[in-house]
Structures are given as C-alpha cells and as structure tokens.
Write a protein that binds this DNA or RNA. Structure first.
Lengths: 95, 95
DNA sequence: ATATCACTTGGTTATATTGCCAAATGACAA
DNA sequence: TTGTCATTTGGCAATATAACCAAGTGATAT
C-alpha cells in the first residue's frame, strides 16, 4: 500500500468518521432540505453551542458541508449532494 | 427526537463508524471483487490476527459484511452491495 | 467606543477506540 | 487422542473523541 493510496483511504475515512456520530448525522440530514444556521441546531440538540460548532467543523473539514457567514449568523449547507441517496441505500435491508 | 428515531440514527452511525477506519475500509474494498478469508487480510495489513478479526467483527455487527466458516477458514463477503457505488460517489469532488 | 449577539477556539475531564499479547475455541489431521 | 491451524475472545495500555466551561473573535447595534 503506497502513500497515495493511504491518503485516499484517510480522506474517505474522514468522511465516514464525520458521519459516524448521531448528532452530526442528524444535522447532515437536516441540511437535505436547505441551509440552517448553528443556533437552529443548538436549540433542538440541546448541546452546548461550542459542542455543536465543533461537530460542524468536523463535517466541514471532511467536505461534507460548507459554511457561509451572513450578518451575525453562520449558515451551513450540504456539500456532498449524494448523501440523501447514500443514506437511503444504507437504510434499506441488504442492498 | 423520539426513541425510534434515535435507534435509526444509531444503526446508521454504526455503519459509518464501521467504515471510519482505514484498515476496515480497505478490507471492505477488497471484498468488492469477492470473498476473502481473514488470513489474506492479515498478510497484507501487517496487523495482529486478533486486531484484524476484531475489525471484521465490527463490520459484521454493522451488517456491512457477513462471514461463513468453511473448513478451518472463515470467509468474509460484502453484505451492503451498494458500497462500491457509495464510495465512488464520495470520492468524486463535489457530488 | 462599547455592548451584544452568534459563533469559534482552548483547555480539561470522561469515555471510547485501537493495538498487542495471551489464552480459548473449533475443525481437521495424524 | 493429541496436535496444529485459523480464528476469536479477554485484558490491558496508548491514543483519540466528545462533552462542558471559559475566553476570544468579528459583525451589527447603540
């Protein structure tokens, strides 16, 4: 296994790691129907602002989501557009 | 968020967790072109037999792979057949 | 300029994951 | 039966992850 292959695997596992937490996966699913700002997540998840922010930065670093600051708020939106399809595949039994 | 929704998220994150390790992801990819026995993985990964076996059991518990004992060997094969497609989607930039 | 709002970053502690070694298991072979 | 091979399980130490609180930042409002 060469260095290039190792980097490919690390990038891919980075995406899976990012999705491998209930709060993060839930937030990703919320983005399926459009952007949300951080405070909207904090309200529902009942986690500390800092915790939610860190979760989102993990998703951002993995290129799963992207952010945009507008006014006082930061809006997150889905970057990996295939995720709704992927999650639907994985949810079905034995496909 | 109700109990059923929590269980759904945990099952899904279980799959992503299983894929969120380079050695496990690599093994999953090896299974794309057919079953392999544990010793074949051990040889290439240069990890302890016990380590590889535990990795495979994580993948099995997440329903990503299945195993079958034949003679002295245990053969693992892919159960989530959509994974080649999923990985190809996630590998492409911004899709 | 100062305050406030909506975050992000740093630091700490609790918990989970990963790796190895050693020991147990289960199938086949002698 | 005794041994060996292929694998799993148990236990432990090292490392990584996740949560909170506190402090920092950067935009708007006063």
């Amino acid at each position: 296994m060469d260095i290039k292959e190792k980097r490919r695997l690390e990038e891919l596992t980075g995406i899976f790691k990012a999705l491998a937490h209930p709060a993060r996966l839930w937030m990703v699913e919320q983005l399926f129907d459009g952007e949300k700002c951080v405070c909207e997540f904090v309200e529902v998840l009942k986690l500390d602002f800092s915790t939610v922010s860190k979760h989102l930065s993990i998703l951002k670093n993995a290129c799963v989501v992207e952010d945009e600051k507008r006014g006082k708020n930061v809006y997150y939106s889905l970057r990996k557009k295939c995720l709704p399809h992927i999650i639907s595949c994985l949810t079905k039994q034995d496909i």
